[in-house]
């Protein structure tokens, strides 16, 4: 039963990883930018929610309505003002810019908020769970996270496949020069895609914070690695692959946690490296969407 429970919890944890990975996947799929600061954007989202709660008394769910669009706007302008210029300078520049951001944010957060955990309480939701069988119970919050992750992936898929903006984004990914010839400002398309990636990152960050009961400045480093591992395990270019990758990573971590509480991170990393060696294209056959 312990194993079954670990499996169930791992699958649900995978939902969180998939949500974290989705933004990274969008940014890479459309802009070919690997956002090394992705985890830090998640942390910022969680911090905004925590601060809104502690200083204004805004409920976490209400603050999501504010935090997610706000970081979407931030993402739009980060792309327009910093990354767009970097993209014209070659392959290294966008990486170095996002790495710069990844260094700035956690250190600024430590100076502003100390290293203490900023609480993101969710009231009774954090402890409520549904008992499925003896020794196996599903937490409401992880279940909710999984449902939202699935909805987000499906929504993004549909958005890219069916809407005009989604078509522009796919076109920009394939051939931005031709898109410009068609009279579409590729910079705005790129910026919208980055805004979308940031918004989803913020959402994932708040959910990560809720799961942990709070957020610390060091969470970003962990999360960017989780998100990245989920993307690679799942297979580059596949949105549903991120869900599969997230689940593999989540199960690996919870199963390792059964053996020893110190092992989950190491085993997660080793599983990732093993997939990289044995199946570098990822576990889901990639049908390039974005």
């Amino acid at each position: 039963m312990v194993i079954v429970n670990a499996l169930v919890q791992g699958v649900l944890l995978g939902g969180l990883f998939a949500m974290a990975a989705l933004g990274l996947s969008i940014a890479f799929g459309i802009l070919r930018v690997v956002n090394l600061a992705h985890g830090e954007i998640m942390t910022v989202g969680a911090y905004l929610a925590a601060v809104a709660l502690s200083s204004l008394g805004v409920d976490v769910w209400v603050s999501l309505l504010l935090v997610v669009p706000l970081l979407g706007v931030v993402g739009y302008w980060v792309q327009r003002l910093l990354l767009q210029r970097a993209l014209t300078l070659g392959e290294l520049a966008p990486l170095l810019v996002t790495f710069g951001i990844a260094i700035i944010i956690p250190n600024a957060l430590i100076e502003l908020f100390t290293t203490n955990k900023q609480a993101i309480p969710t009231g009774s939701l954090a402890v409520r769970s549904i008992r499925v069988a003896d020794g196996v119970s599903i937490g409401v919050l992880p279940l909710l996270t999984m449902v939202i992750a699935v909805l987000l992936i499906a929504g993004t898929q549909q958005f890219l496949a069916r809407t005009r903006s989604g078509r522009y984004m796919r076109a920009a990914a394939d051939d931005s020069d031709t898109l410009r010839l068609m009279g579409v400002d590729h910079r705005r398309v790129y910026a919208s895609a980055m805004g979308l990636a940031f918004a989803i990152a913020a959402l994932a960050g708040v959910f990560f914070g809720m799961r942990q009961g709070g957020v610390t400045p060091f969470d970003g480093q962990l999360m960017v690695l989780f998100a990245f591992e989920a993307v690679i395990i799942g297979g580059l270019g596949s949105l549903w692959g991120t869900l599969a990758g997230g689940i593999v990573l989540g199960v690996a971590q919870t199963l390792a946690g059964v053996v020893s509480p110190e092992l989950p991170l190491l085993v997660g990393n080793l599983v990732f490296l093993a997939v990289l060696v044995l199946r570098p294209t990822g576990i889901v056959r990639s049908k390039v969407v974005a």
Binding site: E91, L225, F228, L273
Partner: peptide, 27 residues
């Protein structure tokens, strides 16, 4: 292992290797 990845993913891949190295050393 690292050369399976390119560009930005190579960057994060090396980061994962560094984390794994630390996690192994502290065992």
């Amino acid at each position: 292992v690292a050369f399976r990845l390119r560009g930005g993913y190579f960057a994060i891949g090396t980061w994962v290797i560094a984390e794994a190295a630390r996690q192994i050393v502290i065992r």
